[in-house]
Nucleic acid binder design. Structure first.
Length: 486
RNA sequence: CGGAGUGUAGCGCAGCCUGGUAGCGCAACUGCUUUGGGAGCAGUGGGUCGCGGGUUCAAAUCCUGCCACUCCGACCA
């Protein structure tokens, strides 16, 4: 037994943040690296988290008028090449499908693509779907009556990334991609801002994280977009994470894919299109924003499991009664719409506790002979830890459980905002930026937007691996956020 | 694609220089004592040593060809 409190995750965040991140994922059983280069296997607990995100966010899109659909995984290479900036942005990271049949290798080394099965027209595995959806839009839209057309798909895409990290940057990743078409610029802009607002609502009200909404600088724009809006967050190690983006594609894709409509007065007009997304990367964001040295901390409203009930069994013949008490408790919590489960596994109680801690289950409830006798439960908040341990009457707990979960959410969100604010430093010159990042400065610096015209900025950005994150709405374009980023 | 490195039990590694019965830690399994913030003891199971060729009485070890992956650079939701 060591004297100082041992952390569940080794190393700690301070000792080695990237390694800590990997260990949290492993300890929480969220995902693992797969045998496929750069691709992860999302394990049941991690997928449950993603499913919850889908289940909560998807109805919001439908409410707004977006319809779900599914487009092919494979995109003709020719499509990608049509939009000049778009190709340039994605061509370097595309996996290409060139054959449609395998055959035994004559040299005896398993299988090889059959030379006579070479495709006339190769495909790329979609890195994003603007092009193939654009092609469909050109046929689906004829009249102003067909607008707006609002489409979304939940899908995975593939980008052949050089350096990968689970959730944050994997070759294959899961996301939703929305693609909307409007009559004019105003419609497209409103759409971008509306979706960005939905993202903000989702992040703050469900994931308990906050950041900065804003406009991307020109060099950080999506390839093929006229304007990119982004939600930027600050991680605990001082690096920023782009959590979601919406793109005003102007008429760029409309021109290349011939997306036109007849207006009321009979004229032929180009559509204004948008695209927008958030991805499983957000799970990485949750880990790096909320996690501590004991592992994951699940925001209650997205947690696959909100309450774990641990029966504390002693060898005194009361096991059956305690289990019954726990089952009843879980049933009552479920009636209140709380995701609760008894951990009835054949394991030692302390091991179950640590397991629940590492998985980040928001509320842990312990029930032993003492509680059962007294008609009580003991509960502990994951975000605070043992200091929050309290024993209260069962009835009272049932009434207060939802409130406890909400309180955890509120505190986590407040912490996230506090962290963001404490890691945003106002600067006024390139020298300030140099000074900030040369010292132990961590986080965003916020500079007057004119600084982008300063020629000495580029060298400083390069030296410290910085990029512009966005020009936050709150300052109406007068400032720009700069940080290291994932 | 440049530079470096690694492939040996589920995971992490030692053994290789100097060929000679395949080893350690963790995990798993069994038993007993335990169980309210990471238990102890005893025992058990598990590996064609990345793949192919060569040298040798004998290859994880030496030679050779191939493959895969990791890290560092340019790219990135």
């Amino acid at each position: 037994m060591s004297k100082k409190p041992r952390t569940a995750i080794t190393p700690t965040r301070e000792e080695n943040f990237p390694e800590w991140y990997q260990q949290v994922i492993k300890s929480a059983d969220l995902a693992e690296n797969s045998p496929v280069r750069g691709c992860m296997t999302v394990k049941p607990y991690g997928w449950a988290l993603w499913e919850n995100m889908i289940n909560i966010f998807d109805p919001w899109l439908k409410e707004y008028g977006v319809q779900n659909c599914s487009f092919p995984l494979l995109i003709p290479v020719e499509y990608l090449s049509k939009e000049a900036e778009h190709v340039e942005g994605f061509a370097k990271e595309c996996a290409v499908v060139t054959h449609h049949r395998l055959e035994a290798d004559p040299d005896g080394n398993g299988l090889r693509p059959a030379p006579d099965a070479k495709l006339e027209e190769p495909f790329v595995v979609r890195p994003t779907s603007e092009t193939i959806i654009g092609e469909a839009m050109s046929r689906w839209i004829q009249s102003y009556r067909d607008l707006p057309l609002q489409l979304n798909q939940w899908a995975s895409v593939l980008r052949w990334e050089m350096r990968t990290r689970m959730f944050l940057r994997t070759s294959e990743f899961f996301w939703h991609e929305g693609h909307n078409a409007f009559e004019d610029h105003e419609g497209a802009t409103k759409d971008c801002l509306h979706i960005l607002g939905l993202y903000e609502k989702f992040f703050t009200e469900v994931l308990a994280v906050d950041g900065y909404k804003g406009v991307k600088t020109e060099d950080e724009r999506f390839p093929g977009a006229n304007e990119t809006y982004a939600f930027e967050m600050m991680m605990q190690d001082g690096k920023a994470l782009q959590a979601a983006t919406t793109h005003d594609l102007g008429t760029n894709f409309a021109k290349t894919f011939d997306i036109k409509y007849q207006s009321k007065d009979g004229g032929e007009e180009l559509c204004h299109t948008t695209s927008w997304a958030f991805s499983t990367r957000m799970i990485g964001g949750l880990i790096m924003m909320h996690g501590d040295d004991d592992g994951m901390i699940m925001p209650p409203r997205i947690a696959p499991q909100q309450v774990v009930v641990l029966p504390v069994i002693k060898d005194d013949g009361t096991a059956g009664q305690i289990n019954e008490y726990c089952d009843k408790l879980v049933a009552q919590l479920k009636e209140k719409g709380i995701k609760a489960k008894v951990d009835g596994r054949d394991m030692r109680t302390p091991d179950k506790m640590w397991d629940a801690i590492k998985k980040g289950i928001p509320l842990r409830v312990e029930v032993g002979g003492r509680e059962m006798e007294a008609g009580e439960v003991t509960c502990v908040r994951r975000d605070i830890g043992r200091d929050s341990k309290q024993t209260l009457p069962l009835e009272k707990f049932l009434v207060e459980a939802q409130g406890l979960l909400d309180a955890i959410h509120d505190d986590m969100l407040a912490n996230s905002r506090k962290f963001r604010d404490e890691h945003t430093t106002d600067v006024s010159s390139v020298a300030d930026i140099q000074h900030f990042f040369s010292g132990d400065g961590l986080g965003f610096v916020k500079a007057p937007v004119d600084i982008l015209k300063d020629e000495s900025l580029e060298a400083v950005m390069k030296e410290h691996g910085l990029s512009t994150r966005n020009m936050p709405f709150e300052d109406e374009g007068r400032t720009v956020l700069i940080a290291k980023a994932y």
